[in-house]
Protein backbone atom coordinates (compact mmCIF):
# COMPACT_ATOMS: atom_id res chain seq x y z
CA UNK A 1 0.00 0.00 0.00
CA UNK A 2 1.53 3.23 -1.07
CA UNK A 3 -0.43 5.52 1.21
CA UNK A 4 -1.36 5.28 4.81
CA UNK A 5 -5.08 5.98 4.86
CA UNK A 6 -5.43 5.88 8.58
CA UNK A 7 -2.52 6.89 10.76
CA UNK A 8 -2.09 4.97 14.04
CA UNK A 9 -3.09 8.20 15.81
CA UNK A 10 -6.57 7.69 14.36
CA UNK A 11 -6.56 10.49 11.81
CA UNK A 12 -7.30 10.08 8.13
CA UNK A 13 -5.43 11.84 5.33
CA UNK A 14 -7.55 14.96 5.60
CA UNK A 15 -7.61 15.07 9.39
CA UNK A 16 -10.95 13.42 10.01
CA UNK A 17 -11.47 10.49 12.35
CA UNK A 18 -12.93 7.29 10.87
CA UNK A 19 -16.61 7.88 11.76
CA UNK A 20 -16.69 11.52 10.66
CA UNK A 21 -18.49 13.00 7.68
CA UNK A 22 -17.08 15.80 5.62
CA UNK A 23 -18.46 19.29 5.90
CA UNK A 24 -21.96 19.41 4.45
CA UNK A 25 -23.45 22.51 2.80
CA UNK A 26 -26.92 22.45 1.31
CA UNK A 27 -29.09 24.88 -0.55
CA UNK A 28 -32.62 24.21 -1.63
CA UNK A 29 -34.49 25.95 -4.42
CA UNK A 30 -31.84 27.60 -6.55
CA UNK A 31 -33.53 27.70 -9.92
CA UNK A 32 -36.72 29.51 -10.73
CA UNK A 33 -37.30 27.49 -13.91
CA UNK A 34 -37.10 24.03 -12.42
CA UNK A 35 -39.89 22.69 -10.27
CA UNK A 36 -37.41 21.77 -7.64
CA UNK A 37 -33.67 22.17 -7.27
CA UNK A 38 -30.97 21.69 -4.69
CA UNK A 39 -27.25 22.00 -4.25
CA UNK A 40 -25.18 19.76 -1.99
CA UNK A 41 -21.56 20.21 -1.09
CA UNK A 42 -19.86 17.34 0.71
CA UNK A 43 -16.34 18.50 1.35
CA UNK A 44 -15.04 19.27 -2.10
CA UNK A 45 -17.66 17.23 -3.92
CA UNK A 46 -20.22 19.61 -5.32
CA UNK A 47 -23.46 18.49 -6.85
CA UNK A 48 -26.47 20.22 -8.37
CA UNK A 49 -29.86 18.56 -8.92
CA UNK A 50 -32.96 19.85 -10.69
CA UNK A 51 -36.34 18.15 -10.84
CA UNK A 52 -39.02 18.77 -13.49
CA UNK A 53 -42.42 17.22 -13.11
CA UNK A 54 -44.64 15.50 -12.69
CA UNK A 55 -45.43 16.47 -16.27
CA UNK A 56 -46.73 15.06 -19.47
CA UNK A 57 -44.21 12.68 -21.03
CA UNK A 58 -42.38 13.93 -24.09
CA UNK A 59 -43.06 10.75 -25.95
CA UNK A 60 -46.24 8.75 -25.69
CA UNK A 61 -44.45 5.46 -25.66
CA UNK A 62 -42.51 6.31 -22.52
CA UNK A 63 -45.60 6.64 -20.37
CA UNK A 64 -47.09 4.05 -18.02
CA UNK A 65 -50.80 3.92 -17.48
CA UNK A 66 -50.73 3.30 -13.76
CA UNK A 67 -47.84 5.40 -12.50
CA UNK A 68 -45.30 8.08 -13.26
CA UNK A 69 -42.01 7.37 -14.94
CA UNK A 70 -38.80 8.68 -13.35
CA UNK A 71 -36.01 9.72 -15.71
CA UNK A 72 -32.57 10.46 -14.38
CA UNK A 73 -29.80 12.20 -16.24
CA UNK A 74 -26.45 12.20 -14.52
CA UNK A 75 -23.65 14.37 -15.78
CA UNK A 76 -20.12 15.03 -14.62
CA UNK A 77 -18.63 18.35 -15.62
CA UNK A 78 -15.43 18.02 -17.60
CA UNK A 79 -13.71 20.44 -15.22
CA UNK A 80 -14.82 18.57 -12.12
CA UNK A 81 -11.72 16.49 -11.53
CA UNK A 82 -8.03 17.30 -11.52
CA UNK A 83 -7.49 16.23 -15.08
CA UNK A 84 -9.88 17.55 -17.70
CA UNK A 85 -11.99 14.79 -19.08
CA UNK A 86 -14.89 15.25 -21.44
CA UNK A 87 -17.52 12.58 -21.31
CA UNK A 88 -20.30 12.01 -23.77
CA UNK A 89 -23.85 11.56 -22.65
CA UNK A 90 -23.70 8.02 -23.87
CA UNK A 91 -20.90 7.21 -21.43
CA UNK A 92 -21.82 3.79 -20.07
CA UNK A 93 -20.54 4.62 -16.64
CA UNK A 94 -22.78 7.70 -16.37
CA UNK A 95 -25.79 5.79 -17.66
CA UNK A 96 -25.22 3.11 -15.07
CA UNK A 97 -25.07 5.60 -12.22
CA UNK A 98 -28.19 7.30 -13.56
CA UNK A 99 -29.99 3.99 -13.58
CA UNK A 100 -28.87 3.25 -10.03
CA UNK A 101 -30.29 6.58 -8.86
CA UNK A 102 -33.49 5.97 -10.77
CA UNK A 103 -33.99 2.61 -9.11
CA UNK A 104 -33.17 4.14 -5.73
CA UNK A 105 -36.04 6.62 -6.03
CA UNK A 106 -38.65 4.43 -7.72
CA UNK A 107 -39.79 2.57 -4.58
CA UNK A 108 -39.89 5.76 -2.50
CA UNK A 109 -41.64 8.23 -4.79
CA UNK A 110 -45.43 7.70 -4.80
CA UNK A 111 -45.49 7.26 -8.53
CA UNK A 112 -48.97 5.80 -8.50
CA UNK A 113 -50.31 9.25 -7.68
CA UNK A 114 -49.37 10.48 -11.14
CA UNK A 115 -50.28 7.95 -13.83
CA UNK A 116 -49.23 8.72 -17.42
CA UNK A 117 -46.73 11.36 -16.35
CA UNK A 118 -43.00 11.66 -15.94
CA UNK A 119 -40.60 13.11 -13.44
CA UNK A 120 -37.18 14.20 -14.73
CA UNK A 121 -34.17 14.48 -12.46
CA UNK A 122 -31.11 16.26 -13.83
CA UNK A 123 -27.93 15.85 -11.84
CA UNK A 124 -24.75 17.75 -12.50
CA UNK A 125 -21.54 17.04 -10.61
CA UNK A 126 -19.55 20.26 -10.54
CA UNK A 127 -16.57 19.11 -8.58
CA UNK A 128 -15.48 15.60 -7.80
CA UNK A 129 -13.67 14.60 -4.65
CA UNK A 130 -15.06 11.17 -3.98
CA UNK A 131 -18.56 10.16 -2.97
CA UNK A 132 -20.28 11.48 -6.10
CA UNK A 133 -23.05 8.90 -5.96
CA UNK A 134 -24.24 9.64 -2.48
CA UNK A 135 -23.92 13.38 -2.98
CA UNK A 136 -26.09 13.02 -6.09
CA UNK A 137 -28.75 11.02 -4.27
CA UNK A 138 -28.87 13.48 -1.40
CA UNK A 139 -29.13 16.43 -3.78
CA UNK A 140 -31.87 14.69 -5.79
CA UNK A 141 -33.78 13.97 -2.61
CA UNK A 142 -33.74 17.64 -1.62
CA UNK A 143 -34.72 18.69 -5.14
CA UNK A 144 -37.64 16.22 -5.15
CA UNK A 145 -38.87 17.60 -1.87
CA UNK A 146 -38.42 21.11 -3.22
CA UNK A 147 -40.54 20.14 -6.23
CA UNK A 148 -43.22 18.90 -3.88
CA UNK A 149 -43.25 15.38 -5.21
CA UNK A 150 -44.74 13.03 -2.62
CA UNK A 151 -42.28 10.54 -1.21
CA UNK A 152 -42.75 8.11 1.62
CA UNK A 153 -39.59 9.27 3.32
CA UNK A 154 -36.30 11.04 2.73
CA UNK A 155 -33.78 9.11 0.68
CA UNK A 156 -30.42 9.67 2.33
CA UNK A 157 -27.25 8.12 1.03
CA UNK A 158 -23.81 7.77 2.45
CA UNK A 159 -20.68 5.76 1.69
CA UNK A 160 -18.26 3.90 3.89
CA UNK A 161 -15.07 2.08 3.13
CA UNK A 162 -12.60 -0.17 4.83
CA UNK A 163 -8.92 0.47 5.27
CA UNK A 164 -6.22 -0.32 7.83
CA UNK A 165 -8.61 -2.61 9.68
CA UNK A 166 -11.18 0.10 10.32
CA UNK A 167 -14.38 1.18 8.64
CA UNK A 168 -14.12 4.74 7.30
CA UNK A 169 -17.13 6.98 6.67
CA UNK A 170 -17.62 9.14 3.61
CA UNK A 171 -14.50 8.43 1.57
CA UNK A 172 -12.81 11.27 -0.28
CA UNK A 173 -11.04 10.95 -3.60
CA UNK A 174 -7.68 9.94 -2.16
CA UNK A 175 -9.26 7.20 -0.12
CA UNK A 176 -11.43 6.00 -2.99
CA UNK A 177 -8.57 5.86 -5.44
CA UNK A 178 -6.40 3.79 -3.09
CA UNK A 179 -8.49 0.76 -4.05
CA UNK A 180 -10.37 0.87 -0.79
CA UNK A 181 -13.51 -1.24 -0.88
CA UNK A 182 -16.35 1.30 -0.79
CA UNK A 183 -20.00 0.67 -0.03
CA UNK A 184 -22.70 3.24 -0.82
CA UNK A 185 -25.97 2.89 1.02
CA UNK A 186 -29.25 4.75 0.43
CA UNK A 187 -31.61 4.58 3.37
CA UNK A 188 -35.07 5.69 4.41
CA UNK A 189 -34.23 7.21 7.77
CA UNK A 190 -37.62 6.75 9.41
CA UNK A 191 -38.04 3.08 8.71
CA UNK A 192 -34.36 2.29 8.48
CA UNK A 193 -35.00 0.43 5.23
CA UNK A 194 -32.33 0.41 2.57
CA UNK A 195 -33.29 1.19 -0.99
CA UNK A 196 -29.86 0.88 -2.48
CA UNK A 197 -26.68 -0.94 -1.61
CA UNK A 198 -23.79 -0.55 -4.01
CA UNK A 199 -20.32 -2.02 -3.78
CA UNK A 200 -17.98 -2.64 -6.69
CA UNK A 201 -15.01 -4.16 -4.94
CA UNK A 202 -14.22 -7.13 -2.77
CA UNK A 203 -14.59 -6.89 0.97
CA UNK A 204 -14.19 -9.70 3.42
CA UNK A 205 -17.53 -10.81 4.81
CA UNK A 206 -16.29 -10.43 8.37
CA UNK A 207 -15.88 -6.69 7.88
CA UNK A 208 -19.04 -6.09 5.91
CA UNK A 209 -21.27 -5.56 8.91
CA UNK A 210 -19.00 -2.88 10.40
CA UNK A 211 -18.92 -1.02 7.13
CA UNK A 212 -22.67 -1.28 6.63
CA UNK A 213 -23.37 -0.15 10.18
CA UNK A 214 -21.10 2.83 9.79
CA UNK A 215 -22.69 3.81 6.48
CA UNK A 216 -26.19 3.67 7.96
CA UNK A 217 -25.01 5.72 10.92
CA UNK A 218 -23.72 8.27 8.42
CA UNK A 219 -27.09 8.22 6.65
CA UNK A 220 -28.88 8.94 9.91
CA UNK A 221 -26.74 11.93 10.73
CA UNK A 222 -27.05 13.21 7.15
CA UNK A 223 -30.83 12.79 7.40
CA UNK A 224 -30.93 15.21 10.29
CA UNK A 225 -28.96 17.79 8.34
CA UNK A 226 -31.16 17.39 5.26
CA UNK A 227 -34.29 17.65 7.36
CA UNK A 228 -32.98 20.83 8.88
CA UNK A 229 -32.18 22.20 5.42
CA UNK A 230 -35.70 21.45 4.19
CA UNK A 231 -37.32 23.04 7.21
CA UNK A 232 -35.18 26.14 6.80
CA UNK A 233 -36.03 26.33 3.11
CA UNK A 234 -39.75 26.13 3.90
CA UNK A 235 -39.51 29.19 6.10
CA UNK A 236 -38.11 31.38 3.36
CA UNK A 237 -40.79 31.94 0.75
CA UNK A 238 -39.80 31.17 -2.81
CA UNK A 239 -40.34 33.64 -5.59
CA UNK A 240 -42.86 32.33 -8.08
Amino acid sequence: MSRELLAPEGLRVDGRRPPELRRLLTRVGLFAVADGSAYVELGNTKCLAAVYGPKEPRTQSAQLHDRAVINVEYNVASFSSGERKSRTRRDKRLLEIASVIKRTFEPVVMTATFPRSEIDIYIQILQLDGGALHAAINASCLAMIDAGIPMSDYVVACSAGFASGTALLDLNYIEESAETPALTVAMLPKSGKLTMLNMESRLHLDHFKDVLDLATEGCKSLAESLDEAVRKACKTPRPI
Partner: peptide
Protein backbone atom coordinates in the same frame (compact mmCIF):
# COMPACT_ATOMS: atom_id res chain seq x y z
CA UNK B 1 -11.41 23.63 7.20
CA UNK B 2 -8.57 24.57 4.99
CA UNK B 3 -8.28 23.77 1.36
CA UNK B 4 -4.91 22.84 0.08
CA UNK B 5 -4.70 23.60 -3.60
CA UNK B 6 -1.68 23.11 -5.75
CA UNK B 7 -0.76 22.25 -9.28
CA UNK B 8 1.06 19.04 -9.99
CA UNK B 9 2.60 17.62 -13.08
CA UNK B 10 1.73 14.00 -13.79
CA UNK B 11 4.05 11.37 -15.15
CA UNK B 12 2.55 11.78 -18.59
CA UNK B 13 3.33 15.45 -18.55
CA UNK B 14 -0.13 16.87 -18.18
CA UNK B 15 -0.69 19.44 -15.50
CA UNK B 16 -3.43 18.77 -13.00
CA UNK B 17 -4.78 20.77 -10.18
CA UNK B 18 -5.05 18.97 -6.88
CA UNK B 19 -7.46 20.18 -4.30
CA UNK B 20 -7.39 18.56 -0.91
CA UNK B 21 -9.34 19.19 2.22
CA UNK B 22 -7.45 19.70 5.40
CA UNK B 23 -9.44 19.69 8.61
CA UNK B 24 -8.10 21.40 11.69
CA UNK B 25 -9.23 20.02 15.01
Amino acid sequence: LFSKAYVRKTKRGSVIKVLKEHYLR
